[in-house]
Simulated scan of single mutants.
Amino acid sequence: MLRRLVPGLLLTGLCVCTPPAEPPARPPPRLVLWAWERPEDLRFLSPADAEVAFLAATVHLTEESFRVVPRRQPLRLPPGLRPRATVRLEMRGGASLAHVPEALRQRVAEGLVDVARRMDAAGLQLDFDARESEHPAYLRLLEEVRARLPQGTPLSITALVSWCTRDGWLTRAPVEEVVPQWFRMGADGAAHEARLRRAPVAPCLHSLGVAMDEWRAPPSFASTVYVFNPRPWTALAFQTARSKVVTQVVTP
């Protein structure tokens, strides 16, 4: 009887085991190069490899008037690459956006949209370090810009990392993209970085801005990474940035 049972027991212990299926490879993040106010020759880029957001203008704003200072430096791009326009908004003379009259704010909104229209940009991005007291006024400005942009034109804003780790005012912003700036975070940078990695607010879950001269590994959730370079872009700098992003985000 035992001789008959042993082979059966041995066969029962055998199984055909297959290793678990490998998860599908994660696509690399979309890469966007910030081209700031200096001569930039980006003709080495392939439109399939990266996009470009260029500083198109700076708006100087007080509580009585505003002035649009257009880009003065040349920007050279490869054929087929349509960039997005970034506009830097700066309050001057101690002014606060919270105290800008509605009529002036509407004129500013029209000026911002006009920049994107004149540049035939693929989208408009606003770069403004709004203080907490300015958040409601900034939301109103964004609503007025959104209402004036041609249908289908994406609206993006940069953001301080601290905006992405507390109150949910950003969830009310009428924008397609929020880009937390993962650099120049100040004395509380390490704390903000830890909080963003742990529990970012919803609008900050997709894009991120990093800097070549203050590199921090982007969080794994970033599907679009903007890269700021304090020096003119070169093919080597671009390859370095792309390699770092792919290595640290796709295979952290």
Rank of each mutant, 00 (worst) to 15 (best):
R4W: 00
Q125S: 02
F183K: 04
L104V: 12
I157K: 00
V115A: 08
R172K: 11
C17Y: 07
R88I: 03
P24K: 13
Q181M: 15
P70V: 03
L75C: 10
E37V: 04
V69A: 13
P252F: 10
V6R: 13
P24L: 11
E37H: 14
A217E: 10
V210T: 05
V179G: 00
V249I: 14
H99G: 06
A199Q: 12
P19A: 09
R117D: 02
V6P: 07
E177R: 09
D213K: 13
P203C: 12
Q106M: 06
R3M: 04
L2K: 09
L45N: 02
A57M: 07
H206R: 15
L160N: 00
V52S: 05
L236C: 05
E90R: 15
V16G: 01
V52F: 03
P47Q: 07
L160G: 00
L149M: 04
V175R: 03
H60V: 03
R105K: 08
E143W: 11
P19D: 01
E90Y: 06
F44Y: 12
V178K: 09
D129S: 14
R82H: 14
G168N: 03
P39W: 11
C15S: 11
R197Y: 08
V249Q: 15
M1K: 08
A235K: 08
F228V: 06
A121S: 01
E40H: 06
L11Y: 12
P83K: 04
E110Y: 02
L61E: 02
G152C: 01
W215Y: 12
L75E: 07
A211P: 02
L160S: 02
L126W: 00
E193S: 13
R131F: 02
V201S: 14
R82N: 13
R148W: 04
P218A: 11
L75N: 06
L142A: 05
P200K: 07
S46V: 07
V210N: 00
H206W: 10
F183H: 14
R184G: 06
E144A: 15
T62P: 09
R231S: 01
A191T: 11
P70N: 09
G168D: 05
H192P: 04
G189I: 13
R242V: 03
V68H: 01
T240R: 15
L97W: 05
L196K: 01
V201G: 12
P154M: 09
T12W: 15
E63Y: 10
S243T: 13
A130D: 07
